[in-house]
Simulated scan of single mutants.
Amino acid sequence: MTTPDSSKRYLLYGSERYALAILRPIQAAIRARGDEAAWFFDGPGAEDLVEGERLLSVAEVRAWKPRAVITSSNAVPHFFPGVKVETFHGFDAGKPRHIYVRGFFDLYCTTGPRDTAQFRAIADKVGHFSVTETGFPKIDPFMREISGPLPPVRQPPVILYHSTFSPSWSAAETLYEEVKRLSRDGRWRWIVTFHPKMNPETTAKFKALQNEYLTFAENDNILELFPQVDMMCSDTSSALNEFLLTGKPVVTFKNRRPGPQLIDIDDPKEFEPAIERALARPPALMQAIRDYANAIHPYRDGRSSERVLDAIDTFIAGGGRNRRRKPLNLWRKLKIRRRIGYWGRA
Rank of each mutant, 00 (worst) to 15 (best):
S6G: 15
L56Y: 04
D124I: 10
S72T: 06
L12I: 06
L285F: 05
L160H: 10
R345Y: 08
R33I: 11
L244E: 12
P81I: 11
A32N: 10
E177S: 04
S7L: 14
V250Y: 08
G320S: 08
A346Q: 04
L328A: 11
E242I: 10
T193C: 12
G186N: 06
S163T: 09
A46I: 10
H98I: 12
A278I: 00
Q118P: 09
F129K: 01
P283D: 11
N329Y: 02
R257Q: 15
R338E: 03
R24T: 11
S168R: 09
V158Y: 04
N322P: 11
Y108H: 14
G52V: 06
L12D: 07
A29R: 10
L223G: 03
D5C: 08
L49C: 01
L49S: 04
I336A: 05
L262W: 05
L107F: 08
K254N: 11
E270L: 14
A28Q: 15
A317E: 13
S238C: 03
A295C: 00
A29I: 13
V131C: 01
E36L: 01
A311Y: 07
I336Q: 08
G43T: 11
A317Q: 13
R102I: 04
G43L: 04
A208V: 05
G341D: 07
H98L: 15
S130E: 12
N322S: 14
E177N: 04
V101S: 03
F226L: 01
F243E: 02
W331D: 14
L244I: 09
D235Q: 08
V85Y: 13
S305F: 09
Q155L: 02
T164C: 01
F88H: 12
D235E: 10
A29N: 08
Y342C: 06
P157G: 00
I336T: 15
N199F: 00
W169D: 15
R120P: 05
V153Q: 07
M143Y: 11
T116S: 09
R24N: 01
F206M: 05
D313Q: 11
R324M: 07
L279Q: 03
G14W: 07
W39C: 01
G14Y: 15
L240W: 03
L328T: 08
R120Q: 15
D5M: 10
R256F: 13
Y342V: 06
N255S: 11
D266A: 12
T202R: 10
I191K: 07
F88G: 03
E224V: 00
G344K: 05
I146T: 05
I30D: 15
V85P: 01
Y13E: 13
V76S: 10
I159P: 07
S305P: 09
V251T: 07
K65C: 01
D35P: 00
D35Q: 14
W64S: 02
R307H: 07
K65P: 02
L175R: 07
A311L: 02
F80E: 06
